[in-house]
Design a protein around this nucleic acid. Structure first.
Length: 865
RNA sequence: GCCCAGGUGGUGGAAUUGGUAGACACGCAGGUCUCAGAAGCCUGUGCCUUAACAGCAUGGGGGUUCGAGUCCCCCCUUGGGCACCA
């Protein structure tokens, strides 16, 4: 039932239809519904305390348009939303106020939900998910255990930001200019025990499978360079002190091995201590200390000047047999390759710069041309031809770089001096946070004897190699919780402040932390509440993991949960996954181009290997909406005071106007400034639509006729509009259909009568963009609600045919005039008309036509001299 | 430094992929209606000059073509990403 508004009263109309859609479950996705499926997904938001800003509804409007369009086209549509609700701000708020983060998070979710509902998005609210809900994160924990079982999760000492003053580990964003964000205290790097996921094991597949997804090229390229695959060789250099074994390096240019005149170790390299001669000890350890105090950022920031110290030791170049000095320098990173390099100063900028600084030998072994002419001691980093590169058993001279590489690798492999290797920039994923507000990691630490007992009882749940760490000479073994004891929920704590030892606040939740654990049943008892330890078989004593998961965890698989959000037996049923699969389109900001999308792909591939999901990629098609800038052309921010709140716009102009305007602003993918004045244009458009349908008394406009045929121009325009709206939506162009609809309505306005069916068809085209007004007018003109259940209009190509076409005249390529001509005009007739044309003729007078280019119905170009 | 995407009126943007540059809208100016205003409607609006024609114009310069915003080369510039990855 429509409202009875006389004027376009959006404040009445919008809530009215929102509750109608709610009651009619218009946007519910039904697994068993007929028709092809269409799964359209937004990147779900983090429900911050600040509420929605105008950037959220931009992407959400686009996906809502697609959802409504596809429903009208007969698809069964899955269009869900949820909350990525673990996160640092909630924790910081909890520390400040003492309110449990869960409480504040729920408050923020309620506010986000209210705002999103006011925008009229057709989400299936029955499928709403919340990553902090134990029913949800039970499966996040389950996936973690699958990773653990497959040896893809391990613990390692990793450096984190540590603030001695606050006695807390800080996240990157909590460190500003080397000081803690809170209080401005100095921070340092400190090694702490961390969980790490072995994403590098999937590096090759994460790279190769990019070819199978339809993503923006820039995003693919970012992932490619993040993974950073490079081919080369590992070369083992014999050390002068043979007791120390060999020094292994990675190089992408094995062909330049003859030109290696020194070597460099990263300051953290394990061989530094043993390679440093006594005479150099002081200098080297001073250098190491200096390097350690610098953060990664500083080390790369101060990259202009190279620095390093000589260890006093030498290695032997396997090809030249010459002694090469071994240096320590922080331009070599421990985290990449082997943490040591062979330096070829003649053919690498960094080595060249370093060699110049410390007067090291520079030997040229590659020349630009095959004739071997080169400038001694110059830098040449490109590929070319090998020179000065031969010994008794190998000669590369004259070979182009590519072949020289191959030949060197073969020689190395034959002489056991090295091997072909592939290296990745990608590092394993640091997966733990020393925080309260995250998914608890479902691990209990036990001693070796108890671990062995556990393996006997539950042999399938353990990785091939136990995950352990050592503390105070005691080795702790990671014992996974059995499935039956998930979810492992967060305990209530008295304070959300960090424990002070570098562990999370969970380290203070003694009753939760120190437990007796039954290996068979998963049952637990708090040590503090048991006077005598249980002695029955299966009980062991353990300490829970105090780290929690990072915020990425919950967002790594949420798109799967939407297919079956209430399932208590699995993360989603095979049937639901088969019905809905993965999103047909995924829309979100480009700021997640690397991390979220890479992590989600990694988990998806693991789940694929486990047989849980049927596809090897989670997001076959991805689209990034651009950022909406403030009125001043700068990114919106509270401090600048240029933030636009959707609530304000909805109150003043209505959500239909807002949605339409967000799309009208420009291509979805572009970065574009918000212009508060422009919104009037789309609002006027909707008012014009209203007036064309209804009189000022709210009755059907008498110019709408049940019987009278439209004029051919109107008919043509309507069908062109049907075609354009459809084809543009299919190619994700959301701005141009609006212009076309405006052109149509301008024509409606000028016509003295319109066939009512034409107006109804137009309302269907408008409905995905401005669903409330379209629904209202549709009902007032006698349509059956909801409008999306009426099948999408089909355009009739015969309506495009006209007897007259506009022909453009050009003389020597310059536009000189145009004329409506009959269809099928011959070239000779066209030339004749050109000569007679008042504006075209004079340009031809007294000249000879030497060439004619005629595109019938479009253009004729006369070349004259 | 390297990689990527852009640069079109006063403003946001359009241009069927080599065929009328500036659609559609904002803004502005004039008109109509009105006692007056608002809303609506009509007209105009790239630049320069003009009575008019013409000329110029898609960041700049060159090229290909009958014809270039669109294709090619060089340069400038804005934004994004990476950054001692051997």
């Amino acid at each position: 039932m429509a409202t009875k508004c006389k004027e376009y009263n959006f404040q009445e109309i919008e809530p009215h239809w929102q509750s109608f859609w709610d009651q009619n479950t218009s946007s519910r996705a039904v697994n068993t519904a007929p028709g092809p499926k269409y799964y359209v997904l937004d990147m779900f938001p983090y429900p911050s305390g600040a509420g929605l800003h105008i950037g959220h509804p931009e992407g959400y409007t686009a996906t809502d348009i697609l959802a409504r369009y596809k429903r009208a086209k007969g698809f069964k549509v899955l269009h869900p939303i949820g909350w990525d609700a673990f996160g640092l701000p909630a924790e910081q708020h909890a520390i400040k106020t003492g309110t449990p983060p869960a409480e504040n998070t729920q408050k923020n979710i309620a506010n986000f939900k209210r705002q999103i509902k006011a925008l009229g998005f057709s989400y299936d609210w029955d499928r709403e998910i919340d990553t902090t809900d134990p029913k949800y994160f039970r499966w996040t924990q389950w996936i973690f255990l699958q990773l653990f079982k497959r040896g893809l999760a391990y613990v390692d000492e990793r450096p984190v930001w540590w603030c001695p003053e606050l006695k807390a580990v800080l996240a990157n964003e909590e460190v500003v200019d080397g000081k803690s964000e809170i209080g401005g205290h100095p921070v340092e790097r400190k090694n702490l025990r961390q969980w790490v996921l072995r994403i590098t094991a999937y590096a090759d597949r994460l790279l190769a499978d990019l070819k199978d997804v339809d993503w923006p090229d820039s995003t693919k390229r970012m992932q490619e360079s993040w993974i950073g695959r490079s081919e080369g060789a590992e070369v083992a250099f014999t050390l002068e002190n043979s007791a120390l074994g060999t020094l292994k390096v990675f190089t992408t240019r094995p062909d330049t091995l003859f030109g290696c005149t020194y070597m460099v170790l990263a300051p953290e390299h394990p061989l530094v201590a043993s390679l440093t001669l006594d005479s150099q000890k002081d200098e080297v350890s001073r250098y190491q200390k200096k390097a350690a105090s610098k953060s990664d950022l500083e080390r790369t920031d101060l990259a202009k000047d190279k620095s390093g110290v000589f260890t006093g030791s030498y290695a032997v170049n396997p090809l030249t047999g010459l002694k090469v000095p071994i240096w320590v320098a922080d331009y070599v990173l421990m985290g990449y390759g082997t943490g040591a390099i062979m330096a070829v100063p003649a053919h690498d900028d960094r080595d060249y710069e370093f060699a110049k600084q410390y007067n090291l030998t520079i030997t040229t072994v590659v020349a630009a041309k095959a004739d071997g002419i080169f400038v001694e001691g110059a830098l040449f980093t490109e590929t070319g031809y090998a020179i000065n590169s031969s010994n008794a058993s190998l000669s590369l001279n004259g070979l182009p770089t590519l072949q020289a590489k191959e030949k060197t690798i073969q020689w190395l492999e034959a002489n056991k001096g090295g091997k072909r290797t592939i290296n990745y920039k990608l590092r394993d994923w640091l997966f733990s946070r020393q925080r309260y507000w995250g998914e608890p990691i479902p691990i209990v630490w036990v001693n070796e004897a108890d671990y062995k007992k556990a393996i006997q009882l539950r042999p399938t749940e353990f990785p091939a190699n136990p995950v352990t760490y050592k503390q105070n000479n005691e080795t702790h073994f990671a014992l996974p919780l059995p499935d039956s004891s998930l979810p492992l929920v967060l305990p209530q704590v008295e304070t959300y402040l960090p424990s002070g030892t570098g562990e999370s606040p969970l380290a203070n939740a003694t009753a939760w932390l120190e437990i007796y654990f039954n290996l068979k049943t998963g049952e637990t008892k708090a040590v503090s509440q048991v006077s005598t330890p249980p002695t029955d078989e299966g009980w062991v004593k353990g300490r829970r993991e105090t780290n929690t998961m990072p915020q990425w965890a919950g967002s790594c698989w949420y798109y799967l949960r939407f297919t079956d959000p209430k399932n208590a037996d699995s993360l989603a049923s095979a049937d639901a996954l088969k019905t809905w699969g993965v999103p047909d389109i995924y829309v979100g900001g480009a700021e997640h181009a690397v991390l979220h999308l890479l992590y989600a792909r990694f988990w998806h591939k693991v789940l694929f290997d486990l047989g849980v999901v049927p596809t090897h990629e989670p997001f076959p098609k991805l689209f990034h909406q651009g950022i909406i800038l403030g009125e001043d052309g700068v990114k919106m921010s509270k401090t600048r005071g240029n933030v636009v709140n959707p609530d304000t716009v909805i109150a003043s102009h209505g959500t239909d106007t807002l949605r339409l305007y967000l799309m009208f602003l420009g291509p979805l993918e572009d970065m574009k400034p918000w212009n508060p004045r422009g919104i009037e244009g789309t609002h006027r458009f909707l008012q014009k639509v209203w007036r064309e349908c209804l009189t000022s008394e709210g009755d059907i406009n008498p110019k709408l006729s049940d019987s009278a045929e439209d004029l051919p121009e109107i008919k043509k325009l309507l069908h062109e509009t049907i075609r354009k709206v459809g084809s543009d939506l299919d190619t994700l162009r959301f701005n141009t259909p609006i212009s076309q609809m405006m052109i149509l309505v301008n024509a409606f306005q000028k016509a003295d009568h319109i066939n009512k069916k034409s107006m109804l068809a137009f309302l269907q085209l408008l409905a995905p963009y401005a669903p409330h007004i379209a629904e209202e007018l549709w009902a007032r003109l006698g349509g059956v609600s909801p409008i999306q259940s009426a099948s999408w209009p089909i355009f009739d190509p015969s309506a495009f045919a006209t007897s007259e076409q506009k022909l453009v005249f050009q003389v020597n390529g310059k536009h000189r005039g145009d004329l409506m001509v009959k269809a099928g005009l011959s070239q000779d007739e066209a030339i004749k008309l050109a000569g007679e044309h008042a504006k075209v003729g004079p340009h031809m007078n007294g000249k000879t036509i030497t060439k004619v280019i005629y595109v019938p119905g479009k253009i004729i170009n006369l070349v004259v001299t």
